[in-house]
Design a protein around this nucleic acid. Sequence first.
DNA 1: TAGATTGTTAATCGATTAACAATC
DNA 2: TAGATTGTTAATCGATTAACAATC
Lengths: 217, 217
Amino acid sequence: MNKDQLLDIDDISTAMLMRLPRYYNYLKEKNEEKMEVISSTKMAEDLKLNPILVRKDLALVSSTAGKPRVGFVLDELIDDFETFLGYNNVDDAILVGVGRLGTTLLSYDGFKDYGLNIVAAFDEREDVIHQKVNDKMVFPIEKLSNLVKRLNIHLGIITVPKQCAQDVCDLMIQSGIKAIWNFAPIHLVVPDHIVVKDENMAASLAVLSRKLAKMIK
Amino acid sequence: MNKDQLLDIDDISTAMLMRLPRYYNYLKEKNEEKMEVISSTKMAEDLKLNPILVRKDLALVSSTAGKPRVGFVLDELIDDFETFLGYNNVDDAILVGVGRLGTTLLSYDGFKDYGLNIVAAFDEREDVIHQKVNDKMVFPIEKLSNLVKRLNIHLGIITVPKQCAQDVCDLMIQSGIKAIWNFAPIHLVVPDHIVVKDENMAASLAVLSRKLAKMIK
DNA sequence: TAGATTGTTAATCGATTAACAATC
DNA sequence: TAGATTGTTAATCGATTAACAATC
């Protein structure tokens, strides 16, 4: 399997994509510990993954080959991950719904490390409008369309109660948003060309409680 | 493939397990709309899934067979989902780290619908200790072990900064916690018999931004 | 009845794992 | 050199999809 062929394939599996941030976090840790090289074997062991799987993943992400007997240069590998995951070109986003969860997300500065920059927030409740949360202004929802179009933003985050989620979603799409990160526990109906990623805590919990039940039984 | 065989297989795929809450949310919506029966075909269409896949999933979850020409009785199906996902037997949990995210989770009452009941929280910062958040007491971290053992709790939620996450994790395991829901963006090292579910927002974001990039390109 | 929808058995597809030669 | 670790090619495994008979 050569590199050029692989790069043509843009349909990388979700399972693999979900593993990448785990590798990335791991590598950053090792970097802080002043490690300079890392082998895929070691990574697999620590992360409890199959070593062949890790090698395959690294081969896809890494721009340079690893050295037999040694492994990969840590700094280079981290760079490769950042490039691959798009953490280098920061994406602007807007957030709708400045409740508890919305405020938490707005307050979290770590997103920038992952290539996300929330530029503004929207809500309809008088008591939060025109306030700043972590230096980000909260606008009335009516201003959304205008601002999104003007700044050419294509990523929207929904943290409103589920009752309003679909309306907000529709408004976002109308305004030119192309991808939606949905924290409302509801199924959003969208046209085919819109990407939705559900941040479904219930799903996580289902996985966990199911495993737990199996273990205890 | 008959039902008895299926029930023996307790190793249900994660992918399938992640779809179940989507079905469940969808069914609850339809229930609110006073629908009485639902066909797998309709579900597949609305949720943009392959109809055969939906039929398979439903066959596994549902206790009664669907009726050709009609579909499934909505109420029964919802019950089946709740039983299957374990939302009926609520699990007690404790949470460590009463920062923004921790407070958000403590304040969210919806977890009970999903079978999770947070009974207490822990932190080491004086200003939050002995306060109540959404009627849940915040205790000093030293009390964790005792309380977890006494109440026989086996689910722990970690919402501390990543620097302390491993320590908290170790303490939890020492105290008898069997499953950990980890919100810290760090890889936790745990013994084999402990289940960890990472709630990795970076991973979600990776998936989303990757899809977005592909779309825009 | 006719036809929609079901559940089952078989085929396909893709991801993971195994085996192994290459190399520092 | 010897041996660990790499990248590649082939085999396996499991999940998804297709085909179809059963049934209300």
